[in-house]
Design a binder for these strands. Structure first.
Length: 209
DNA sequence: AGCAAGATTAGC
DNA sequence: CTAATCTTGCTA
C-alpha cells in the first residue's frame, strides 16, 4: 500500500502549540504521537500528560532561568524538548507558548497504535502491550526517542503529533507525579479509564473539562 | 575540578 | 525499596 503523506495523516500545525499550556495539555489527550517513517514508524494515542509552566514553576526546568540545557523551553512552540533523566531515561516534552515564554507539556503515556513489533523489540522482553508506552521513559524507548530528537520541530520532522480523530472519554486533573517541588499544582491530566496511564489514577481532583 | 541532584524504571 | 547511570549547573 502507498505511504500516506505526512500532511494527510493530520499533523498538528504550529498554531496548536502556540496557546496557553494547560489548553495544549488538555488537547494533546486523544492525539497521536508519531516517530519514524515507513517500516520504522511507531505511534500511540496520548493518554497522560503534565504541564510545566514558566520560571515561577519550581518543577519546571526553566525555574533557574535560561541555561544551555533548558534552551528549547524558550524556543518556538511545537519543538521537542528531550532530556536525560537519572542518567538513564529520555523524557519528551512538547514546547508551548510563544518563543521567550518557557513552558512545555511532558508526554507521560500512550496507548500503542502502530509499530507494535518495533516497540516490543525496543522494550524489555515480556512487557504486556498495554504497558509498552506507559511512563515517560518507557514511551521514549518504545518510539526510539533519544537526545538526538531534542529540539526537533514537530511541524517538520519525523517526530510529530497528529490528529486521527480519536474520541476520548473524561479527563481527570491531578498533581504532577515524580517531582519533589511544585506538587500543589494540579497540572497532570489523563484519560480516565485508560489502561496505559502510569501512576495512581485515584488521586483525581477534578474530572470535568 | 569536584559534586549533588534528578519530571524513572526494573529487579530484588 | 533501591541501584543504575550521566548530564547539568553550582561551588571552590
Amino acid at each position: 500500500m502507498p505511504t500516506r503523506s505526512l500532511r494527510s495523516r493530520g499533523r498538528l500545525a504550529r498554531s496548536f502549540y502556540d496557546r496557553p499550556t494547560l489548553e495544549v495539555a488538555r488537547d494533546l489527550l486523544g492525539k497521536v504521537l508519531v516517530h519514524g517513517v515507513g517500516t520504522r514508524l511507531a505511534s500511540g494515542l496520548i493518554v497522560e500528560v503534565e504541564a510545566y509552566i514558566g520560571e515561577a514553576d519550581p518543577a519546571c526546568h526553566a525555574s533557574p532561568g535560561p541555561t544551555r540545557r533548558n534552551a528549547p523551553l524558550y524556543g518556538e512552540p511545537g519543538i521537542a524538548y528531550v532530556y536525560l533523566n537519572y542518567g538513564i531515561h529520555c523524557l519528551m516534552n512538547v514546547v508551548t507558548e510563544r518563543a521567550g515564554t518557557p513552558a512545555a507539556v511532558l508526554i507521560r503515556a500512550l496507548e500503542p497504535l502502530e509499530g507494535l513489533a518495533l516497540m516490543r523489540r525496543r522494550r524489555t522482553r515480556g512487557v504486556p502491550d498495554v504497558a509498552l508506552c506507559r511512563g515517560p521513559g518507557n514511551l521514549a524507548q518504545a518510539l526510539a526517542i533519544t537526545l538526538r530528537q531534542n529540539h526537533a520541530d514537530l511541524c517538520h520532522s519525523s517526530l510529530t503529533v497528529e490528529d486521527h480523530g480519536h474520541g476520548i472519554g473524561r479527563i481527570a486533573w491531578t498533581p504532577r507525579i515524580g517531582i519533589r517541588v511544585g506538587t500543589e499544582r494540579p497540572w497532570r491530566a489523563y484519560v480516565v479509564g485508560s489502561k496505559a496511564v502510569s501512576g495512581h489514577q485515584q488521586r483525581a481532583m477534578s474530572n470535568e473539562r
